Simulated assay, not measured.
Amino acid sequence: MSNFDFSPLYRSAIGFDRLVRLLETNQGQVNGSYPSYNVELVSENKYRISISVAGFSENELEITAHDNLLIVKGKHINEKRERNYLYQGITERNFERKFQLAEYIQIKDVHLENGLLSINLERIVPETLKPRRIEIK
């Protein structure tokens, strides 16, 4: 992947400096594809993140949300298992996956079923920010 210079955007995009910094930060991030995940649009304001966490139990997963950042960590408790694999195709390493959330996105619920961690999200815009019709008197 080639690197891009975002400095011209600082001159012409007023108020978007946070977005440019986000692009710069994620550009050099080599998180790989482990664990694999899907981001699904369920309805207009509802989303679902599904993460493949085969081999992890509930107590080995940690989900935290701070500001607009969602962090999902998986850490095996008993890492000192000695096994003699003839072939190992299932990765069992620890992971940390970060998701940048837009404003007003809230986590509604989390489910772990059949090796899939599903995180349901919803955009809830405050009433004061929704458009309203003003009558002429």
Rank of each mutant, 00 (worst) to 15 (best):
V30C: 10
N120I: 01
F56Y: 00
E44H: 10
Q29F: 07
V110R: 10
R133C: 07
P8H: 03
E40K: 10
R18P: 04
T64E: 08
Y37A: 08
E40P: 05
T64G: 09
A13N: 08
H66V: 10
S43A: 08
Y85N: 06
I51S: 01
P131E: 07
R48N: 03
K75E: 10
E113T: 04
E58F: 03
E58Q: 12
F95C: 02
K73F: 02
E135N: 13
R18W: 08
I105D: 02
A65F: 12
E122I: 13
L23P: 04
A54G: 04
K108M: 08
Y47D: 06
L22I: 09
S36Y: 12
L41Y: 07
G28A: 01
S43H: 06
I136H: 10
R48K: 14
G115N: 08
G55S: 05
V110G: 09
E58T: 07
S2L: 13
F6T: 05
I136D: 08
S43N: 14
K73L: 01
I51T: 04
I134C: 05
S57M: 10
L61M: 08
E135T: 12
G74P: 04
R123D: 05
P35A: 02
E92A: 02
K137G: 09
G32N: 06
L101S: 05
K137R: 13
R132C: 04
A65R: 15
V125T: 15
F6W: 12
R97F: 02
E60Q: 14
Y10H: 13
Y47I: 11
I63W: 00
N3G: 14
K73N: 11
R18I: 15
A54T: 03
D5L: 07
S2P: 15
S52W: 06
E135R: 11
N31I: 10
G32H: 05
Q29T: 12
E58V: 02
I14C: 10
N38Q: 15
A13R: 15
R48D: 00
P8R: 06
E62M: 12
I51A: 04
E135W: 05
R18A: 13
L117M: 00
L86H: 05
L19N: 09
Y47Q: 07
R21E: 13
E79R: 15
K80T: 13
T91W: 01
I49C: 00
L129H: 05
I107M: 14
A13P: 03
G89E: 01
F99Y: 12
S118I: 01
V125H: 15
E122H: 06
S36E: 13
N94R: 05
K137S: 03
K130C: 14
F95L: 02
G28W: 03
N31G: 13
L101M: 04
E60P: 09
H76R: 11
V39C: 10
L86I: 14
S36W: 09
N84A: 11
N38D: 15
N31K: 10
R93C: 00
E96H: 03
K75V: 08
